[in-house]
Simulated assay, not measured.
Amino acid sequence: MRLQVALDVLDLPSALTLAGQVAEHVDILELGTPLVKSAGIAAVSAIKAAHPDKLVFVDLKTADAGELEAALAFEAGADLVTVMGAADDDTVRGAVAAGRKYGKQVVADMITVVEGRVARIREVSKLGVSFVEIHAGLDEQARPGYTIDTLLEDGRLAGVPFSIAGGIKIDTIGAVREAGATVAVAGGAIYNAADPGAAAKELKKRATA
């Protein structure tokens, strides 16, 4: 299982600093949506230039104009981009078309899809995405009773390649691996740690145990 770090910071210098602290321990560097909105698409090129050996994941959360938005990110150096799993099928198809053109990957982000999530995961997988990200956003995680177990169960049931984002920590990443995820996405467990590099190293160790 690969480890992805969400660079959920708001400016490029902070993103470059965090990426430098954790890059040797992770497989994928993710530019979070707030970072892209704040720093612009040029941040993608900067992160890729600083870490050309890492996959760069751009969390666009595209909801419309899938081909256009995905192409913007791919031309800037992205290896993977997200399109909303809740978006129109043609939006997903457009992003996938851009991925094929550039030889890159498109991921369907299932954030906001709760009811009927397994069925929708299977539907978007047939549209050609490389995998789906079963994702609980920060607002969902803050609700009473939230548990990552629901995401893991949906991943098992869907029967397609998936990643998990939403509450991955030292004590949950083993369960993510056991559920069959291809990628574990860690955010706060790394960037809020006193030593992000050490936190990433420990998560990577448990991701591949």
Rank of each mutant, 00 (worst) to 15 (best):
1 M>Q: 10
2 R>H: 15
5 V>T: 03
6 A>E: 10
7 L>W: 03
9 V>N: 06
11 D>K: 08
12 L>I: 02
13 P>T: 05
16 L>V: 03
25 H>V: 00
26 V>Y: 12
29 L>P: 09
30 E>C: 09
30 E>L: 10
32 G>W: 12
32 G>R: 08
35 L>N: 00
37 K>L: 15
37 K>S: 12
39 A>H: 00
40 G>D: 13
44 V>D: 03
45 S>I: 01
45 S>D: 13
47 I>W: 07
48 K>V: 05
49 A>Y: 11
50 A>E: 10
52 P>N: 03
52 P>L: 07
54 K>Q: 05
59 D>W: 04
60 L>C: 06
65 A>G: 11
66 G>W: 03
67 E>S: 07
69 E>T: 02
71 A>M: 11
78 A>F: 13
86 A>I: 12
89 D>F: 09
90 D>M: 15
90 D>K: 15
91 T>L: 04
92 V>W: 00
95 A>I: 01
98 A>Y: 06
101 K>P: 12
103 G>E: 05
104 K>E: 07
105 Q>S: 14
105 Q>F: 13
106 V>D: 05
107 V>R: 09
107 V>I: 15
109 D>N: 06
110 M>C: 10
110 M>Q: 02
112 T>Y: 14
113 V>H: 03
113 V>E: 07
117 R>K: 14
118 V>S: 03
119 A>C: 00
120 R>L: 07
122 R>V: 11
125 S>A: 12
130 S>I: 01
134 I>L: 10
139 D>A: 13
141 Q>G: 09
142 A>H: 10
142 A>V: 06
147 T>C: 01
149 D>V: 11
152 L>Q: 11
154 D>I: 09
161 P>I: 07
168 I>S: 09
170 I>R: 14
172 T>G: 01
174 G>V: 05
176 V>E: 03
177 R>T: 12
177 R>C: 09
181 A>E: 04
183 V>A: 08
184 A>I: 12
186 A>V: 00
188 G>N: 03
190 I>P: 05
197 G>Q: 00
199 A>I: 02
200 A>R: 06
203 L>Y: 10
205 K>F: 15
206 R>H: 11
208 T>S: 14
